[in-house]
C-alpha cells in the first residue's frame, strides 16, 4: 500500500469506496464492523502474501485500537467464508491473499505428484446444470482429477 493511499484510509476510512473484500463480505451477509473493514481493506490492497502478524501491523497503522486477537478472528472468518486463501510456502507461517475470482480445479499427476491447475467453462456450466436439474442452487464444488501423462510415441513408431 502506498503512503498516500494509506493516509487516505486513515483520514476517512468510512468514506472510501468499499474494497473488493468488503463487497465480498457484504454479498455473503457478513456484518462489517469498522475493524473488520480495516482488516479487509489491508488484505485487499496487499500485493504480497502477508501472514497474520503482518496484517496486524498494517491494520494497526490505520486503527491502533485493533488487537492481534481481532485480526486472527477476522481472518479465520474470512477464510471460512472463502474470501481469502491460506498458503503455506514452506516457511512454517500461514500466509494469506484475497481469494482469486477465477475458479479453478486441480489435476494431479500420480506418477510425479505434480499438481496442474486448470479451468473449463464447459465443466462449470455442466456442474451448474446438474445442480439445477437436481433442484439445487449450486453453492460450491470440489473436483480433483488424477492422471498420468500420455506416453509420447517413440521415433520408431511414428508414421512415415
Amino acid at each position: 500500500m502506498v503512503g498516500a493511499e494509506r493516509k487516505r484510509l486513515v483520514d476517512s476510512p468510512e468514506e472510501a469506496l468499499p474494497s473488493r473484500l468488503e463487497r465480498a463480505c457484504a454479498e455473503r451477509g457478513l456484518k462489517m464492523t469498522g475493524q473488520r473493514r480495516v482488516i479487509a481493506r489491508v488484505l485487499s490492497e496487499s500485493a504480497d502474501h502477508p501472514d497474520v502478524e503482518e496484517v496486524y501491523r498494517r491494520a494497526a497503522e490505520i486503527d491502533s485500537a485493533i488487537s492481534l486477537a481481532t485480526v486472527y478472528r477476522s481472518m479465520r472468518l474470512f477464510e471460512d467464508i472463502g474470501i481469502i486463501q491460506r498458503h503455506d510456502f514452506g516457511d512454517g507461517r500461514a500466509r494469506y491473499e484475497e481469494a482469486r475470482g477465477d475458479h479453478h480445479h486441480h489435476l494431479i499427476d500420480i506418477e510425479s505428484g505434480e499438481v496442474v491447475e486448470f479451468q473449463d467453462a464447459q465443466l462449470e456450466a455442466a456442474v451448474a446444470r446438474i445442480a439445477r436439474d437436481l433442484g439445487f442452487d449450486l453453492i460450491g464444488q470440489r473436483l480433483e482429477i488424477f492422471g498420468r501423462r500420455t506416453k509420447s510415441k517413440t521415433k520408431g513408431n511414428e508414421p512415415t
Binding site: 486463501q85 491460506r86 498458503h87 503455506d88 510456502f89 514452506g90 481469494a99 486441480h106 494431479i108 500420480i110 506418477e111 510425479s112 505428484g113 505434480e114 499438481v115 491447475e117
Partner: peptide
C-alpha cells in the same frame, strides 16, 4: 511423489 502432491495442493490453498 505423495509428499509433492500434498505439498503442491496445500501451496495452492
Amino acid at each position: 511423489i505423495v509428499e509433492r502432491a500434498y505439498r503442491e495442493l496445500v501451496g495452492r490453498g
